[in-house]
Design a protein around this nucleic acid. Structure first.
Lengths: 184, 184
DNA sequence: TCATTTTTGTTCGAATTTGAACCACACCAT
DNA sequence: ATGGTGTGGTTCAAATTCGAACAAAAATGA
């Protein structure tokens, strides 16, 4: 029960700004894609990852990891994309149980047709709003966060016992975890 | 049909890093909240916004805007929170049709009990990873994006696929928009 | 070689989310 | 007031998402 290190004014502000912006941006991206080509952002990300891979193909698990989605979620989405003819499933030659998601020609065309509008939104609301330094800093920030999460065993830490952590906390004696109810 | 301004190497890198980090972070936050107190991130955000509001209450529409969620989505979530006794609905005194979502005492207790773990995750994976400058820059970046979106009439701009129907037809004329199929 | 443990994908059920369709009430200009 | 328009919330159907449970096919190792 280490007593909580609440977020400072500016840290809270950063987190709030982050939350708001990411939600709004996701909404915009989704809106544009849906209206412009009937795709969801999830669809787009899948097509994009496939397109960026050699042979336009990737195994389900790898793809799932790349787009950061659950296995079942990917199974569902690939199924949808398959119905639309944008992706096809193929047996994995090296692994009997494996399944390859393969970008079809139509999938490529769809992506090429959709990309301009998508990029326009990403630019308009994010990229073009930043200075070169800010862009660089954002990359650094997001990379750090990703690295931190990649290092953490995704199933235990966080809330309870503050077992192994790298931050030098004030290991105080008082269990005064109170101090600010409304946090984020 | 201006021919698309694709993302440069670093811009694409920034966007990819952003996407990956936000997805992973959302996953972590969701995981921690669920495991630690059975709440979803959506739940938490609602409770937090209410808690931060005078009287612990907010009208449905205002709350929906604050947490950036659809009206129907909020109706559903508040319904869930009401079942758990964390929130209550009350008639809005000033507007007959209005509905107030009010944080209950139990809701407050739940938030206080949950906040530490949540904050720990936000810190561990994002806040504590950044230098003071980076934190400041992140706030600036997210604020700019939010501002840009607030200014845009959320229904038209961005990119509109130049008249192409989703049907077969590969549209003969070669458009100059080519240059890079795989974008994001 | 054979049993044990992992890894891969899919299936299933439950929980969410969104937009469209709808009432009830508020606002505004006539 | 009074008809027209705009808001605030909810309801509804459809689409997604996730985690747990499974079946098959590797990978391990004794």
């Amino acid at each position: 029960m280490a007593d909580t290190r609440w977020l400072t004014e500016s840290e809270l502000g950063a987190w709030m700004a982050y939350l708001r912006a990411t939600h709004l941006l996701e909404r915009r991206v989704e809106e544009q894609l849906k209206a412009d080509s009937g795709l969801t952002h999830a669809h787009y990300e899948i097509l994009a990852k496939l397109s960026a891979s050699p042979g336009g193909q990737l195994r389900m698990t790898d793809l799932a990891r790349k787009v950061v989605v659950s296995k079942s979620g990917l199974t569902y989405q690939v199924g949808q994309l398959e119905k639309r003819g944008l992706v096809e499933r193929a047996d994995c030659p090296s692994d009997e149980r494996g399944v390859l998601a393969v970008l079809t020609d139509e999938g490529t065309r769809c992506l090429e047709k959709t990309a301009p509008g998508h990029v326009a939104v990403v630019r308009a609301f994010l990229i073009d709003q930043l200075t070169p330094e800010e862009l660089e800093t954002m990359t650094r920030i997001m990379s750090k966060a990703t690295a931190a999460m990649a290092a953490a065993p995704e199933g235990a830490p966080g809330g309870k016992a503050d077992t192994a952590r790298a931050d030098g906390r004030k290991a105080g004696g008082k269990k005064t975890k109170k101090g600010r109810p409304a946090s984020a």
